[in-house]
Computed example of a mutant assay.
Amino acid sequence: MVPWLAHDDPFPPVERALGASSGAPGLLAASADLLPARLIEAYRRGIFPWYSDGQPVLWWSPDPRMVLMPAEFRVSHSLRKTLKHVLGDDAWQVRVDDDFPAVMRACADTPREGQRGTWITADIVDAYTSLHRAGEAHSIETWYEGTRVGGLYGVSFGRMFFGESMFAHRTDASKIALAALVAHLRRHKIEMIDCQQNTSHLASLGGREIARRAFVAHLRAAVEQPPIPWRFDKSVVAELLGPQSG
């Protein structure tokens, strides 16, 4: 039975999440509220919300957990070629936190193969925008000729980044944003990006699954570290390409 959390109830231990043999592996709890304080507590414990309109707030902690180690980010030949082009073309920009709510709305509105609707509800946008105003959530945005054409957003505590969603309205626009984020995190010695659940797209970029206990052990130490700065531009991707990039 999945517990219902009243306003002041703490989360149960993540080990109590439903197992692989259940109909909802990783489901830990449900609640009516999505207050910023609850959201912060969740992330710091390796828990995230994922639900649709008309459902209660559903809280998850899957085992295994999909992660992307910045040191293992896979730059394919085609992506390398794209990044070199972006570096040399002034029409391309990477901006950080230019318009966080707009990035969330773009992630919500972009059609995805095999997916009907979106889990990025109005309440989700409001809650994560509150974290953004507190400096704990960020958007990395790809712009071309003055138009936002791709990007991603996520949550950051200490030396941990939790990726949430990305979108692209131009080929490779989301990958450009991710490459810039990875390079920035490498620069500040961030070892892990939480990707939550396994997808073939993330696996193609170097993502892999690890045991939840290993994820939580890393998380507990990482979130207690000092926060990193959140100002960078497209020039950071040169660090992924090596000395020939210039």
Results as ranks from 00 to 15, higher is better:
Gly150Pro: 07
Arg213His: 15
Val96Ile: 10
Gly26Pro: 01
Lys189Glu: 15
His7Lys: 14
Ser130Ile: 13
Asp97Arg: 09
Ser174Gly: 04
Ile190Asn: 14
Gly246Asp: 13
Leu27Gln: 03
Glu239Cys: 02
Phe232Asn: 07
Asp109His: 12
Ser139Cys: 08
Leu68His: 03
Gly246Cys: 13
Met104Asp: 05
Arg186Gly: 06
Thr199Trp: 10
Glu145Ile: 13
Asp97Phe: 07
Asp123Phe: 03
His132Gln: 01
Ala20Gly: 03
Met104Gly: 03
Met104Tyr: 11
Val96Trp: 06
His169Ser: 02
Glu224Asn: 09
Asp123Ser: 13
Gly207Tyr: 10
Arg105Tyr: 03
Arg116Asn: 07
Ala222Asp: 02
Glu239Thr: 14
Asp97His: 02
Gln55Met: 07
Gly19Tyr: 10
Gln244Pro: 14
Thr171Met: 05
Ala238Pro: 10
Trp143Gln: 07
Asp53Pro: 03
Val223Trp: 01
Ile140Arg: 00
Phe11Thr: 01
Gly207Met: 05
Phe167Trp: 08
Gly117Asp: 00
Arg105Phe: 05
Pro111Asn: 01
Asn198Gln: 15
Leu240Lys: 04
Ala24Asn: 08
Leu178Tyr: 00
Gly154Arg: 08
Gly150Val: 03
Arg95Gly: 08
Gly135Cys: 09
Met166Tyr: 05
Leu205Val: 02
Pro101Asp: 03
Ser235Lys: 11
Trp60Met: 02
Trp60Gln: 03
Thr82Asn: 06
Ser21Arg: 12
Ala42Lys: 04
Met160Gln: 12
Leu18Trp: 11
Arg133Lys: 11
Arg116Lys: 06
